[in-house]
Simulated assay, not measured.
Amino acid sequence: MSHIFFRSLSLPLLLLAAAAFAQTPIDETRPLDARGRIDIGNVKGRIEVRAWDRDEVKISGTLGEGVEKLVIEGNRQHLVVEVRYPKGGWGNRDKSGPTEMLLNVPRRADLKIESVSANVHVTGVASSVLSINAVSGDVMVAAAPAKASIDAVSGDLALTLNSGDVDVQSVSGDMVLRGRLNGDIDAETVSGNIEIDVVGERIRELKANTVSGDVNVRTALAPKGEIKLESVSGDLLLRLPKDVSAQARGESFSGDLKATGVTVEKRQGPGSSFSTRYGDGSGDIGLQAFSGSAEIRLE
């Protein structure tokens, strides 16, 4: 009887122990200089970074089942936080559970984040450099780094940035970029769509390229600024204020071309083009599409 009783108790206790192991809590704090650097790595789950006004990093969350440990290395100038998986290749990683990490970091600390399928969410930082590399996880950022470099393969990008230098690359994910952007923007994707909305600033240089996705840009242009939009089969739309000053031209092999105040010239054979001047023509604008449409719209 007693053996049966203890056996009946053992199963719930084992289940509770397994659940506790699967949800190993994270609660760590490390010093980091206000302008130090922190590298963060996680394969699956979530990486959330929030800025605060303390010279330290607080790490909280839960480690996934099957994760070997959370590695924290470095010093006050450079800290590394990485989820470590058992040795044995990607098979062991696939069997492990997701790790959820929340990091509070100094507002001006530089950030480098690497993720495979973990979603990345960054808010409030004003780093000199913000670097994010993700494979299949989505990336959301609301921050003011001086320079932002964000690469993704299949995840979507939702970026609100107040930055002077932005480089965004994606393969099949859609990207939305908006904010006070007054320097250089370079956006590129293969099959994803690109949407760029510059708020309250005049861009100095903007380049957006896609193969089969659409590009939709709304911005003002700084004096002697440059905008280049290119697509193979996607559509291009550039919306500018009526006081824009630039030489503008567009070209398409088989798509439709439109531009405010412009008569599009049809070539002998396939293709069409236009060339015009807005204002005193100090800037330079070029749109090039192969089979997609391209339009410049003054609003």
Rank of each mutant, 00 (worst) to 15 (best):
R277Q: 14
A34E: 15
G225A: 02
L103E: 07
E230I: 02
L237S: 03
E201N: 13
G269S: 01
M101P: 14
H78V: 09
V176C: 08
S291F: 11
P12I: 14
E48A: 11
E73V: 05
G292C: 03
R239Y: 11
I203H: 07
I4H: 10
G64E: 07
G36P: 08
S273Q: 09
D138S: 14
E299Y: 13
R30M: 03
V215P: 11
K147R: 10
L240A: 06
V67Q: 09
A17M: 04
Y278K: 12
A34G: 15
E299W: 10
I203S: 07
L16D: 05
N216A: 11
G200F: 03
R108E: 15
D184N: 10
V57M: 00
N133E: 15
D280V: 15
Q288E: 14
I296Y: 00
D256H: 04
Q247H: 15
L161H: 13
K258Y: 11
F274T: 02
V166Q: 10
V262A: 01
I132T: 12
K112S: 05
G250P: 08
S60K: 09
R54I: 00
S8G: 04
I113V: 15
R297L: 03
V105C: 07
G255E: 00
T99I: 03
D184S: 11
T260L: 11
L257G: 00
G41A: 12
G36E: 05
I185D: 02
G200H: 09
A20T: 14
H121D: 12
G137V: 08
S252K: 02
S10L: 12
E265A: 05
N193V: 06
R46E: 03
A222L: 00
T62G: 07
P25W: 11
G179N: 02
E295I: 00
I26Y: 08
S10I: 10
E299A: 11
R204G: 11
V232G: 00
A142G: 14
